[in-house]
């Protein structure tokens, strides 16, 4: 992954001792960047900036001094029911290739937590035009898909803002999930499937003409109505999920670009819309650890 223009913080804001004020200790200079935008996934290739909330001030070592303390604010998406915030990662995609050109399509299977993004394909470079003939289809889009992994409160995006008076503040927004999007080659599978189907059909036709009819004389199965359920019973967990995934239909999302008005509005809201209550923690460090261990 390449360093992008995003910033993400990987610390839980609760992770502070009781006495002290919440603060961020910046070890690496944060790069100015834009937070991710809800439901409008965009480029987010980032170098994780280590913004560590130190829990033990007294035992701070000499080689790791506190440079500056910045108050923390927490904010959430404007409407939690409608919007959610995700980090999208594009493994295998060069940093240089921006994601803001062309038209993007995104769709999601919310039950299976599966996201698909269709990205326009640059066919001018590293593209074997002759293969297209084999595949017999004009391939204009690259399909990227991946599972949304819930981040379970571990990931936040943060933006360090400097206001007019030079006071800095860091705004934290929790992330719902992360997803690594990988290319899927559905067009190859489609060809395979159709070939397979064709073969089957041919075979079935041959079969029909030659086969003798066999009369089955087996007794009726007990509990046919349980079979529906029984079928699900006997499938493995993973296969059940696959089955559910196949049955679920895609719901389309609209893709907004960086410069989009709505995007900017939400970004602003995220940064400034915080209730401007400085975060202090009441959870004692010991309690926190205890909670963690006993869960």
């Amino acid at each position: 992954m390449t360093p992008g223009n995003e910033l993400f913080v990987e610390e839980d804001e609760e992770m502070k001792s009781d006495s002290e004020e919440p603060r961020l200790v910046i070890k690496e200079e944060p790069q100015d960047g834009l937070p991710a935008v809800p439901e409008q996934p965009e480029e987010e290739d980032e170098e994780p900036v280590h913004v560590e909330a130190e829990e033990e001030d007294d035992e701070e070592e000499d080689d790791d001094p506190i440079i500056e303390s910045i108050p923390l604010y927490i904010n959430t998406m404007p409407s939690r029911f409608k919007n959610s915030l995700h980090i999208l990662q594009y493994p295998g995609r060069a940093k240089a290739r921006r994601l803001d050109q062309g038209h993007f399509h995104a769709s999601i299977k919310p039950q299976s937590k599966y996201l698909e993004v269709k990205v326009p394909l640059d066919t001018s470079k590293f593209f074997d035009g002759t293969k297209v003939e084999d595949w017999g289809e004009e391939i204009g889009e690259q399909t990227l898909s991946g599972v949304l992994d819930p981040s379970e409160g571990g990931y936040y995006i943060a933006k360090v803002e400097t206001d007019s008076e030079g006071n800095r503040k860091a705004v934290l927004v929790p992330i719902d999930s992360t997803a690594q999007l990988r290319t899927s080659f559905q067009y190859i599978d489609a060809i395979d499937n159709s070939a397979h189907q064709q073969k089957k059909q041919e075979q079935a036709e041959i079969h029909k003409t030659t086969s003798v009819q066999i009369l089955q004389s087996a007794a009726k199965h007990t509990g046919t109505q349980a079979n529906m359920d029984g079928f699900m019973h006997s499938l493995g967990d993973s296969l059940k999920h696959v089955k559910r995934f196949d049955e679920e239909s895609w719901s389309l999302l609209s893709w907004k670009n960086d410069e989009d008005e709505i995007t900017n509005k939400i970004k602003k809201e995220l940064i400034n819309g915080a209730d401007s209550i400085e975060l202090t923690t009441e959870t004692k460090f010991d309690d926190y650890i205890q909670k963690l261990i006993n869960e």
Binding site: Y114, G230, G236, S238, L239, H241
Partner: peptide, 28 residues
């Protein structure tokens, strides 16, 4: 009594549960 699985399903089942069985995948 177990249903017959297609080749693809067999493959998924193998990856999800059979190979390195102590890491069981239950979702996608």
């Amino acid at each position: 009594g177990a249903p017959k699985l297609s080749q693809l399903q067999e493959g998924i089942e193998a990856i999800a549960t059979t190979i390195i069985a102590h890491l069981t995948v239950s979702d996608l």
